[in-house]
């Protein structure tokens, strides 16, 4: 437990005077499957945005592999091994499935490879690899189509694959299971387990507790911008603060929590 891939130290952030994150600190262990849960508005997505560099924290540090990310623009963080998906699917609507996946590789290529035509030098431009990856995930059927017409579950999957293409050390997933049916959720879980087995650390936000329970070992719980629990998922239900925070919530989440 001494070599965290990601360490958050006292992260604070406010928008327009409202404190969204209040001194949040926790570690994500290398190779772990770590969940970040909490009621809506707890600051989970904001925390993701701080980690990926969309927002700068007012206080505190984000350490990736022991190195402070301060001053590193969001664009360059993917090269440091950080990749993410989004709460609302944000695939490029006018790019085909294959092109979306290839966009995920962007950070791995030098300028000289970027000016080679993709169709004629599929190997050195990464196109061949992208096709292979699509095949291995069983979504090659769609590769030439633009994404907007595809089923929701497929699009979610493509987004995860796109995030993987940068060969990240740490993958941030913002509500990957939201909106998926049971079968799709199960497929996603298997996919993420496979990803994890490749040695990639997962940090994910989700509301679907059965999904989180069956995937993650570690969990951090946030409420009103503060971290109220950080530890193994098995001890979660014993923690009084967590129970208290979740008691005030709506029935549905409560039930899935139980």
């Amino acid at each position: 437990m001494s070599d965290p891939i990601l360490r958050l130290e006292d992260i604070s952030k406010s928008f327009g005077g409202v404190r969204v994150l209040e001194k949040v600190s926790f570690d994500v262990e290398r190779g772990s499957r770590h969940a970040l849960i909490g009621p809506n508005g707890a600051g989970k997505t904001t925390l993701f945005n701080v980690i990926s560099g969309i927002h700068d924290p007012e206080q505190g540090k984000v350490l990736l592999e022991g190195k402070d990310l301060k001053g590193i623009p969001s664009r360059k963080r993917i090269k440091k091994g950080l990749s993410r998906s989004f709460q609302n699917i944000r695939l490029m609507p006018h790019l085909s499935v294959l092109e979306n996946v290839m966009l995920g590789q962007h950070s791995r290529f030098q300028f000289l490879d970027m000016v080679k035509p993709l169709n004629f030098s599929a190997k050195s431009t990464g196109k061949a690899e992208a096709i292979e990856t699509l095949n291995s995930f069983g979504i090659d059927l769609y590769e030439g189509q633009t994404v907007s017409s595809l089923p929701y579950g497929i699009r979610k999957k493509i987004e995860v694959v796109r995030a993987l293409m940068s060969e990240p050390q740490l993958l941030l997933l913002d509500e990957p299971a939201a909106g998926l049916n049971t079968a799709e959720t199960n497929t996603l879980r298997d996919l993420l387990k496979e990803v994890s087995n490749r040695g990639i650390t997962l940090l994910l936000v989700d509301h679907d507790m059965p999904f989180v329970n069956s995937l993650c070992e570690q969990v951090s719980v946030m409420n009103f911008g503060q971290l109220i629990y950080d530890g193994p998922i098995s001890d979660l239900k014993k923690d009084e603060k967590v129970l208290e925070a979740y008691l005030g919530m709506d029935e549905k989440t409560e039930r899935s929590n139980a």
Binding site: E99, M102, T125
Partner: peptide
């Protein structure tokens, strides 16, 4: 047809 073009469209 290159990666630059892909990035432009992105």
């Amino acid at each position: 047809s290159t990666r630059i073009g892909l990035a432009m469209r992105a």
